[in-house]
């Protein structure tokens, strides 16, 4: 048993003890951190291979709205609604991802196409205001404690759900990290043509990781919706959420298992801390400081927090960039070309 195992054991012990010890507000914060950690981990499944998607706001939005709407209008249980929402998100991922990969939409272009996708979902939700309540958002019909409706007024239940979800996200990350697909994907993000030349099925690998990432993100959106019981297009879709996801995942570090979770822990406790600190007198103050810290983090910790810490531990190791966009965009810079 090495140090890592000890740390994991201690961490799990804390997680198990938490609901019995922590005050409800604190538990609320932890649940949010865990759900978002799951979502950021889902994003990093793509992000770590250079597919920088700004479209996860779309998957999140579909995942959250579909079960909530089905529940409110048809009384359909989230146990069916969530899979439908996930299916919707996956469909979206395929409809946009497949042509993107086929047509080699990469780098900045990929980032901006996926950004448009999250705007499409945001604006559609706003436009369908008769059904969704538009930008005012809407509240799920509450029925009290119910397994059928997946609603639990006591935080303990969602705490357990959030922990399990988070662990599942880590497991997914690990299985991709350990799987044979990883090398293939790394090769693809290095040089797609070369990867194809050595017999890697580029499309298949890219689609697989995209679908998994979108599906998990949608699940995260759904659980988030079930937990907070209020949805607003701005908080689960669009450019702002997409940026939030990309930021937190990258700030934490996408190359390590716990990086995105650390990103979630830090960004959420920071915003929450700042919010409490400044109270309601200074609306915007918290996010102002948050914005400054983000910029500083990108400038001074280009590896992400976990990456930078690891970098310090094994100094001298060749630094990996925080995320590499596909080569096509990297080689756009002739300044480094040999004369």
């Amino acid at each position: 048993m090495n140090l890592n195992h000890v740390l994991w054991a201690v961490g799990l012990a804390i997680l198990i003890a938490l609901p019995f010890l922590a005050p409800p507000y604190f538990l609320h914060l932890v649940i949010q951190i865990l759900i978002w950690a799951f979502i950021y981990t889902a994003w990093s499944l793509m992000g770590r291979f250079g597919f920088v998607s700004f479209g996860h706001g779309a998957f999140l939005g579909v995942g959250a709205y579909v079960p909530a709407l089905l529940w409110n209008y048809y009384g359909l249980t989230p146990w069916l609604g969530i899979p439908l929402g996930v299916a919707g998100a996956v469909l979206l991922a395929i409809v946009v991802g497949y042509p993107c990969f086929r047509r080699r939409v990469v780098g900045h272009y990929f980032a901006l196409v996926t950004l448009a996708l999250s705007q499409v979902v945001l604006l559609s939700l706003v436009a369908a205001r008769d059904i969704t309540g538009g930008s005012l958002g809407f509240t799920q019909k509450a029925v009290g404690h119910s397994w059928y409706a997946l609603q639990f007024p006591e935080k303990g239940y969602f705490y357990v759900i959030a922990v399990l979800l988070w662990l599942a996200g880590l497991a997914a990350w690990r299985s991709i990290d350990r799987g044979i697909g990883r090398e293939a994907l790394e090769a693809i993000s290095e040089d797609e043509d070369a990867a194809a030349a050595v017999g890697i099925d580029v499309m298949r690998q890219k689609m697989r990781v995209t679908i998994v990432s979108a599906a998990l993100t949608a699940v995260g959106g759904a659980i988030y919706g079930q937990y907070v019981m209020y949805l607003n297009p701005e908080t689960v879709s669009g450019i702002a959420v997409s940026l939030q996801i990309v930021f937190a995942a990258i700030a934490g570090g996408v190359y390590s298992l716990l990086g995105p979770s650390v990103g979630s822990l830090l960004t959420l406790s920071l915003t929450e801390g700042l919010r409490v600190w400044f109270g309601t007198d200074y609306i915007g103050a918290a996010n102002t400081i948050y914005g400054i810290l983000l910029v500083l983090c990108i400038i001074f910790m280009p590896q992400g927090i976990v990456g930078s810490l690891q970098g310090m531990r094994r100094r001298g190791a060749i630094a990996k960039p925080l995320v590499t966009l596909d080569r096509q965009s990297a080689t756009r810079r002739p300044s480094s070309a040999a004369q």
Binding site: V52, G107, H108, A111, L243, V246, F247, I250, Y282, I283, G284, A285, A286, N287, T288, Y290, G291, I292, L294, V295, C297, I298, I299, P302, P321, L322, V323, T324, L325, S329, A330
Partner: peptide, 27 residues
């Protein structure tokens, strides 16, 4: 400061500025 970083860092640095400008204006 991020000219030599990966393109995504550059995107994110200006994204952080977006966040800052919007919040600062709100403040």
């Amino acid at each position: 400061p991020v000219l030599d970083s990966a393109p995504i860092n550059q995107l994110l640095a200006t994204g952080g500025l977006l966040f800052f400008l919007q919040s600062f204006a709100t403040l």
